[in-house]
Design a protein around this nucleic acid. Structure first.
Lengths: 246, 246
DNA sequence: TCGGATAGGCGCCCA
DNA sequence: TGGGCGCTTATCCGA
């Protein structure tokens, strides 16, 4: 069983060599920066990454209870029978006082790979550009170049009556803010083009009742559309992959 | 040096006993659910929490590259010289194929404490309720967080001329969406009360130029205000805490 | 660097 | 359970 001083020595060494560090400990934490926080003593898992990102995790939940962003400087010291980590990044400060260290590991991670992700809102907009009938028959999208020219509008074109139409995509459920966002775009186009008659469309798998009401109040319309998934290979092998019983 | 089969045995045991699990490994990952993703082989840190949250971290960045939310079921198996973790949560699936395990730890975490956080938007709204002159002389607040009746308005009251005024707080920099949000609240109030004259105010430390323009176009106004920080004790000891040289 | 917008966002509160 | 919304949001992308 290593003593806390021994952990401190190997931890200092690992940090200086830019290894990733993972440990389980009992600690209390002060943070001051964009906000301020105090977390009383309890068991946590702490990760310090090679870019000096610091994460503190409690035994539940997806998000770290405390964290520091990449580029933070970390200094470890011993204060009596406690191990203290002081972290600083600009105007942000954190102090972790470790009462006990349950385990400690470090690792030089070899990982240059980045994730390939599909089914995002961007994929959805591209799908609608390629299949404009999904919005409505006769819809003609402008080119992508023109799309970027007008800012952050997802899809942009003309309907069968040649009316300029702004389409806002949402990959999940469209809400009130999606409608106000669309409204802002439509007004932007009206303003910059000097045209009165501009249509607004929300394309999403579904929409909340309040959002639909506001949409209709503004004379906009809703089109049901789902984001595409390209990695069909994996889809097909799902039954196989998850053939275990729950 | 433990073999991958040995790791699998202790890992299965730890998972069944609802311990938190932390490991470093080389792995590749498939995910399918709200989107789909593939992550080629590389070194990662994996955490499985007691609520069955799964986090996969690369050596840089704050966010996990892959994850599964609380309540996921995890099944570990050996496939040749690989260790495979299959995870399932509703319509979401993940498969982690581990080529090599660098380290492994588990821990029954004892942590009932929750974080105390100040300097949030809610604190800011409370500050403005208690010090209405910060908005403007003569401002009288009605109530805070009008959740039920008129939406989720932060602060709500009357100005010195008894005009109904809606205040939207932002803890950081107010942007276009803050203005459209305020606009939506003001219109809601006008509509439900049948009153034409309703003022809109954004209270934030700062505001983007475009947002300010839109705000003014709509006859709304901007008030500079910062979220309060209460844990002054820690503030004062900052020099002391961070007296190390960088 | 700033601004704008998305996220497999998450987490919290409330009807 | 779903809607609405803040977040120490983080992260990406374009000007």
């Amino acid at each position: 069983m290593l003593k806390i001083d021994d952990y401190a020595v190997i931890m200092k060494n690992a940090l200086s060599k830019n290894h990733s560090v993972v440990l389980g400990c009992s600690c209390e934490i002060n943070y001051s920066g964009r906000a301020e926080s105090f977390l009383p003593d309890g068991d946590r898992i702490i990760v310090i990454k090679e870019d000096k990102t610091l994460l503190v995790h409690q035994p539940t939940g997806s998000n770290p209870v405390n964290y520091m962003k990449a580029g933070t400087s970390h200094v470890l010291s011993i204060d009596g029978d406690k191990c203290v980590l002081k972290s600083k990044n600009g105007k942000e400060f954190m102090e972790i006082v470790m009462r006990r260290i349950h385990f400690f590991n470090y690792l030089k991670m070899n990982d240059g790979k980045s994730i390939v992700l599909t089914g995002t809102e961007k994929d959805m907009a591209e799908m609608l550009m390629k299949n404009p009938d999904m919005i409505e028959p006769g819809f003609k999208p402008f080119s992508m170049e023109e799309h970027t020219k007008y800012g952050f509008i997802d899809v942009f074109g003309t309907d069968k009556f040649n009316i300029i139409t702004v389409v806002e995509c949402k990959r999940y459920c469209a809400d009130l803010s999606a409608v106000t966002q669309l409204r802002r775009y439509v007004e932007k186009i009206k303003d910059s083009k000097g045209i009165e008659n501009v249509r607004g469309v929300i394309a999403a798998p579904r929409i909340t009742p309040n959002a639909l009401k506001m949409l209709q109040d503004w004379g906009f319309s809703f089109v049901e559309a789902k984001p595409p998934k390209y990695l069909e290979k994996f889809d097909k092998s799902q039954q196989n992959l998850h053939s275990f019983t729950e």
